[in-house]
Simulated scan of single mutants.
Amino acid sequence: MTKATQTASFLGVIFTIYIIFLFKIIPLPEIVQEDILPVLPWWALVTFGAYSLGNIGYHVYIFGDCEDAYRELMTEIQIAKNDLRTKGITVD
């Protein structure tokens, strides 16, 4: 079973349980049924968004320097500049 299939199965089960509670097939206490259940999808969306932004921010913060890639890029830039100079183009 792939990760996508596992995720789809999990979300399908969660969605089915939510629909069962939302349409009162299985009754819940009135406060939960009227006040909490209708806003649960929005809460989940906001929570997922906050987690995603936090995760992206954390990984940008710990982004490691790649010294080898830097040296390789600088070498390629120098080769390109030399090639352009041989063709008569002025390069800074």
Rank of each mutant, 00 (worst) to 15 (best):
G64R: 15
A44E: 08
K87V: 01
F23Q: 12
R71W: 09
V32F: 01
I31A: 02
A4I: 10
V60H: 10
Y51N: 09
G88T: 13
F63Y: 12
A69G: 04
T7G: 01
G57P: 00
I36E: 05
I14E: 04
Y18D: 14
V39L: 10
Q6R: 08
E30T: 07
Q33N: 05
N82S: 15
E72M: 12
C66S: 11
G54M: 09
D92G: 15
A69Y: 03
I36L: 15
I77F: 09
P29C: 00
T5G: 00
F15P: 00
S9Q: 05
S52Y: 03
I26M: 12
G54Y: 03
P27C: 07
I56F: 07
F23D: 14
K87P: 02
L53F: 15
G88L: 06
C66K: 10
L22D: 10
F15A: 15
R71D: 15
Y18A: 11
T16H: 03
M74D: 11
S52Q: 09
V39E: 09
T75C: 04
P27E: 14
Y61W: 11
M1H: 02
I79Q: 12
T86G: 01
H59P: 01
I79G: 00
G12S: 03
T16Q: 02
D92L: 13
C66T: 09
I20D: 06
T16P: 00
I20Y: 07
T90N: 12
L28K: 02
I26G: 03
S9L: 07
E72G: 01
E67V: 06
T7I: 13
F23E: 14
V32Q: 01
I25L: 14
C66P: 00
L37Q: 06
I14K: 01
I20A: 12
P41V: 08
E30A: 03
H59W: 08
D65S: 08
P27A: 07
I17P: 04
Y70T: 10
F23P: 05
V60G: 02
D92A: 12
G88V: 11
K87G: 03
V60A: 14
V91W: 10
T16Y: 05
L45V: 13
A4V: 10
L45P: 00
D92T: 13
F48K: 07
Y70P: 01
T16C: 08
N55I: 01
M74S: 13
F63M: 14
F23Y: 13
V39W: 13
I19T: 13
D83C: 04
F23R: 09
I26D: 02
